[in-house]
Simulated assay, not measured.
Amino acid sequence: MSQQPSDLSHIRPWRHIERRKSRQIMVGSVAVGGDAPISVQSMTNTPTSDAAATIDQIRQLEEAGADIVRVSCPDEPSTAALRAIVRESRVPIVADIHFHYKRGIEAAEAGAACLRINPGNIGNAQRVRDVVQAARDHGCSMRIGVNAGSLEKELLEKYGEPCPEAMVESALNHARILQDHDFHEFKISVKASDPFLTVAAYQQLAEAIDCPLHLGVTEAGPLRAGTIKSAIGMGNMLWSGIGDTIRVSLAADPVEEIKVGFDILKSLGLRHRGVNIIACPSCARQGFNVIETVGVLEEKLAHITTPMSLSIIGCVVNGPGEALYTDVGFTGGGAGSGMVYLNGKMAHKQLNTGMVDEIVQQVEAKAAELEAARTVVIPTHVAAE
């Protein structure tokens, strides 16, 4: 079998992240917590009552790789549309319920895989019992979602302001309600728009309870600034092993949230999806327009979901060294041509004029090879055993 330079985990022990031990729950068909892969999710921003528009956006999120999608259910028309939405979705749907317990019951009956709800906000003990029973009857898990911007009045009075201690106390209070009803299929989030507050709250929560944790820096902002803030906050937690599912909250197209989420996980070696492009920022030594080429390649390789690596380096200073550890590489040279590398080795020279097409062809071929290598044919007598 050919060399796979991008798979070097066995000789790079310093890249290993030891994840926090959490119990596992199911969000529909997706396992969250335990040793399950960290799932990536986003939320629709269409009116949920408009089933067609919501389904269309869910489809876009699915194509981007979303593992889970959340929809808001603030009113009865939304939960009425949810059944059709769930039926058409290929990924589990989380129904976001804030205050009205009937919406939670309706969402469970409509097929939601998970309810995002704070049990203490939906009224008296009987209402909580009704929602828990509906979740149990219909195989729903729950997410307790604590936000710094909507903490309970008594906690704000106790602590004076949103702080990690107040957020964790809120989360544990809500968790206790579910535990008192012998319901343990829940995960928790403690989000703030301040990454310092967010990280501190999750660190305390991770020590206090063993349930899966849903990570996010809430209301992170526009695409660029929000991406940076999310990467700092969530990257810090993921690096230390905290987090079982993530949502990047951007004031942007929800598809971008999925892309950024996977990029964060990919950067930490926690999930691998699609082509990881390693590219130099370019300088006067470049033998071709690196920035323009990388932009074109990102678009042309967006359909590749197979985990693999590609290096695009403008000159021979770092090019050969980077290519040594990637599946496909191209290093700029002189006289309008460069060198193609395959599996870490020099393959052939390539004119810059046909470079993009050649790289795309080589990446597609390598992706097909890797996919074929994953297919293991089990002999009939072994399968029978």
Rank of each mutant, 00 (worst) to 15 (best):
T306Q: 14
D253W: 05
R127L: 14
L151I: 11
L310G: 00
S39I: 04
E88Q: 10
N124F: 13
G216Y: 05
A220T: 00
G344T: 09
C315G: 05
N173D: 14
N173F: 00
S282C: 11
M237C: 12
R136K: 15
V217W: 04
A110H: 06
A200P: 06
S311G: 05
I278M: 10
P162E: 11
D253E: 11
G329R: 03
I277A: 01
H100Y: 14
L270D: 01
M26Y: 12
S311V: 07
G34M: 08
K187P: 03
E369D: 15
I17Q: 01
G243Y: 03
D263C: 08
V360F: 07
S42M: 10
V376Y: 07
K349F: 11
A206T: 10
D67E: 03
V316L: 13
T245P: 10
G329K: 01
V328A: 00
Q57H: 06
T326E: 01
V376L: 13
G221I: 06
V356W: 12
V260H: 00
A171F: 13
R374L: 15
C211Q: 01
E152Y: 12
T245K: 06
Q57G: 07
I246W: 07
D96I: 04
G123C: 12
A225R: 14
R271L: 04
D130C: 08
E185A: 14
Q286Y: 07
V294R: 10
D194H: 11
V376R: 09
S170V: 05
G111C: 14
K229A: 04
L82N: 05
A80W: 05
I117F: 12
D253A: 11
Q203T: 11
D182Y: 02
G334K: 15
L250F: 06
E257H: 06
G287V: 02
V255T: 10
A367V: 06
G123Q: 06
R87T: 10
S6Y: 03
T227Q: 05
D253C: 09
Q4R: 12
A135Q: 02
P379V: 08
G274I: 04
G28A: 12
V356I: 15
K229S: 03
P222M: 11
Y202G: 07
E371P: 04
R374S: 15
F330K: 08
E157L: 12
G334F: 12
V296Y: 07
E298A: 04
V128R: 04
I85K: 00
N318A: 00
F262T: 01
P5T: 04
A231N: 06
W239E: 14
R12T: 13
L82F: 07
L370Q: 07
N343K: 13
P307C: 14
S311E: 05
L223D: 02
E292W: 01
G160R: 00
H98P: 00
S49N: 14
F262M: 07
G149D: 13
C283G: 04
N289M: 03
G149Q: 13
L310F: 07
A323H: 03
V27D: 01
L156F: 09
